[in-house]
Amino acid sequence: MNFFNSLTGSPCNISFDLDNCQNRKTIEVTSEKGKSEKLFVFVGNEPVSGKVSINLKDKAKKIEHKGIKVEFVGQIELFYDRGNHYEFTSLVRELAPAGDLTESKTFAYDFMNVEKQYESYNGTNVRLRYFVRLTISRNYASNIVKEYDIWVINFNKPPEVNSNIKMEVGIEDCLHIEFEYNKSKYHLKDVIIGKIYFLLVRIKIKYMEIALIKREQTGSGPNVFSESETLTKFEIMDGAPVRGESIPVRLFLSVFDLTPTYRSVHNKFSVKYYLNLALVDEDDKKYFKQQEITLWRRGVSKPIANTGKPEVHNEIPTPDPDASEDDSE
């Protein structure tokens, strides 16, 4: 696939071509300027190789240059700190020494074993990009630079420990509930199964919902920016339950645009996810409890295509009658 990018005043058109991309998955990404583009998805340490073509617009005009190079860059862009991009990875390949480019030319490049530690990320206040950059250095004119983004994802190993989340919360003599989510760590296509058990209800509840919240935190020290985004409000109960009722929770994560949990990316930012269980009473008063869940990206044995859903019924945990007793101590 070719990308044509006409640079005003630029004497040439530059196009990148990546190897092994006939069947490569793409992802649609909305860029800073609101444009959406399709990027090829790379996993982990996959090599990035390909060709870059420089086509002169006017064949009579040669381009004098001090050298042509191609770089592979991984960088973090903090929106509040424009211009300061943190490159955490950068590899360079010299394509041509200083000279004149008199005709259109195609160069091959190859970044083998390039480490792509972080996943690409396109957040509210921060962006993590990987791209290939061609630079034609010039003496008298400004350098000709062209960047070409790819999208990187990393599969995680299934968590070794994945206990459920179970907790009793309440307001004395008013409301006591026990909630349980079947896991603490969910992969991105996972289903959150849970139940809310009402131990004491003295308020008139109107409804109960679970919100999935994404919290992006950038910067450090005095310059910490926190951005919360509610990805969904999922009503799980309508009406007022009485003591002893248990309400099922089943939330399919595949619908949402999620990333794995990023604890600390190059000490620049983190992305965490929370389940916020909220009960609303008839006076629209809210009672809630937030609980972090860890999201991880599951490796695909099967193609990532949207088929082969988990057998839903088998994943419904049967309520454990002893569980609540153990926990009430």
Binding site: D238, G239, P241, S246
Partner: peptide
């Protein structure tokens, strides 16, 4: 039987008397 079991379980989500 599996579907029935699942449906009846999920219906607990509606606790409002008339709607339930």
């Amino acid at each position: 039987k599996d579907v029935l079991k699942d449906l009846i379980e999920m219906c607990r989500g509606v606790q409002h008397p008339t709607r339930g």
